[in-house]
C-alpha cells in the first residue's frame, strides 16, 4: 500500500503529460475539422467560421485543452461530428473485441513461450535448443500482417478450419466467437511469442547457473521440479515487465490485424477515424489507449511484489 501511495504522484503526472501530448498531437494535425465536416468546396467562409465557433475551435489551445480534459475526466470525450455518436460509447462498444484479441494473443504467446523457453534453456546449446531459437528468430522477422495473410491462406483458404474474416460476438455463440478470434489472435501472438521465448530463455539460463539451483539439485529435487518451482519464478521478472510494455505493441498490431480480419475493434475504429479526420474520435481513442497503457504498466510494477519478496519487504 505504501508503494501505491509513493508512486501515485508519478502516475498522475504521467497521465497529465500523456493527455496534453494527445491533445497537442491531434490539434496539430492538418486539415480544419470544420471544413472536413461541411465538405470541401462551395461552402461559405461564414458557415465555416460559425461551425468553428460552435465546435469551440476559435478559442486558445490551452483553454480548449482544459475544457476537453475536464470533460474527459467525467468520461465524456464528446460526440463525433461525423457520426454524431458519443466517442465514449463508440470506444466502449468496440473495446471488448480488442481486449479479447489482446488477451487471447498474450495468453497464446505465453502458453507456447513458457514451455518452449524452459525446454530450450534446460537443453541450452543442444540441437533442440538451436531449432527452437532459430524458430523464434525467424518469427521475429515476420510482421504480424504478413503472419495474418499466411494464416488466412493456410488455415482459412486452404484447410478451411477458421473463417477468414468477420467477428461473432461471444454472446451470440461462444464457439463461433472463439473460431472467429482464433486467427487474428494467433497472428498477433506469434511475434510476441518469439519475444517472450527469447527473453525467458536468456533469464532461465542465467538463473540455472545460480547456486540455489545447484543447492536444489543437491537436495535431490527432480529436474522438472527444479525448472518449475525453483527456476521459473525468479526468471520471470523481465518477462512480466515486457508483457506489460508490449501492450503498446499489441495495440499497434491490433490496428492492422483488426483491419485485415474486419473486426469491429478499437484499433479499426482508430484507423478509420484517422482516415476520416474524425479528430475528436481520434483524440478520445488515443487518450484512452495511452491511459490504459500507463495504468497497466503501473499495475505491473506493483505486482512485482507478488513475485519477488525482496520488493515486497522493502517498504
Amino acid at each position: 500500500m505504501h508503494l501505491v501511495l509513493r508512486k501515485l504522484p508519478w502516475l498522475i503526472g504521467t497521465l497529465l503529460a500523456v493527455s496534453f501530448f494527445t491533445f497537442l498531437l491531434v490539434s496539430l494535425l492538418p486539415g480544419d475539422p470544420a471544413v472536413m465536416i461541411l465538405g470541401a468546396g462551395g461552402v461559405s467562409p461564414e458557415a465555416v467560421a460559425a461551425l468553428r465557433a460552435e465546435l469551440g475551435l476559435d478559442r486558445p489551445l490551452l483553454v480548449r485543452y482544459f475544457d476537453w480534459l475536464g470533460s474527459a475526466l467525467t468520461g465524456d470525450f464528446g460526440r463525433s461530428p461525423m457520426t454524431g455518436q458519443s466517442v465514449m460509447d463508440a470506444i466502449l462498444s468496440r473495446l471488448p473485441v480488442t481486449i479479447q484479441l489482446g488477451v487471447m494473443a498474450i495468453i497464446i504467446a505465453l502458453l507456447l513461450a513458457v514451455p518452449l523457453a524452459m525446454l530450450s534453456a534446460y537443453h541450452a546449446g543442444s540441437r533442440l535448443d538451436r531449432v527452437i531459437s532459430g524458430l523464434g528468430f525467424a518469427l521475429m522477422s515476420i510482421p504480424s500482417f504478413m503472419m495474418a495473410i499466411f494464416l488466412i491462406l493456410i488455415l482459412a483458404v486452404s484447410m478451411n478450419l477458421f473463417p477468414a474474416t468477420g467477428w461473432v460476438p461471444f454472446s451470440v455463440s461462444p464457439t463461433a466467437n472463439l473460431r472467429s478470434a482464433a486467427l487474428p489472435a494467433l497472428s498477433l501472438a506469434m511475434i510476441e511469442l518469439a519475444l517472450y521465448m527469447r527473453l525467458l530463455r536468456t533469464d532461465l539460463i542465467s538463473t540455472l547457473q545460480q547456486d540455489y539451483i545447484t543447492l536444489a539439485r543437491a537436495k535431490g529435487v527432480p529436474n522438472w521440479q527444479i525448472m518449475l518451482r525453483h527456476a521459473l519464478r525468479p526468471s520471470s521478472f523481465s518477462l512480466m515487465t515486457v508483457v506489460g510494455l508490449q501492450l503498446g505493441g499489441v495495440i499497434s498490431g491490433a490496428i492492422i490485424i483488426e483491419e485485415i480480419f474486419a473486426l469491429p475493434g478499437v484499433g479499426r475504429l482508430l484507423y478509420q477515424s484517422i482516415l476520416q479526420r474524425d479528430l475528436l474520435m481520434v483524440q478520445g481513442i488515443v487518450l484512452f489507449i495511452a491511459t490504459a497503457y500507463v495504468v497497466v504498466n503501473f499495475l505491473v510494477d506493483l505486482s512485482y511484489s507478488l513475485l519477488d519478496p525482496r520488493v515486497r519487504h522493502a517498504d
Binding site: 541450452a124 531459437s133 528468430f137 519475444l195 527469447r198 527473453l199 536468456t202 533469464d203 508490449q246
Partner: peptide, 22 residues
C-alpha cells in the same frame, strides 16, 4: 539489472543470444 532492461533491450539481447546459439 535484467528487470528494467525490458522491451527493446531484452529483445535485442535475446536476438543476440539466439543468434549466438544458432
Amino acid at each position: 539489472t535484467s528487470y528494467g532492461s525490458a522491451g527493446r533491450a531484452s529483445r535485442a539481447l535475446s536476438f543476440s543470444v539466439a543468434v549466438r546459439q544458432v
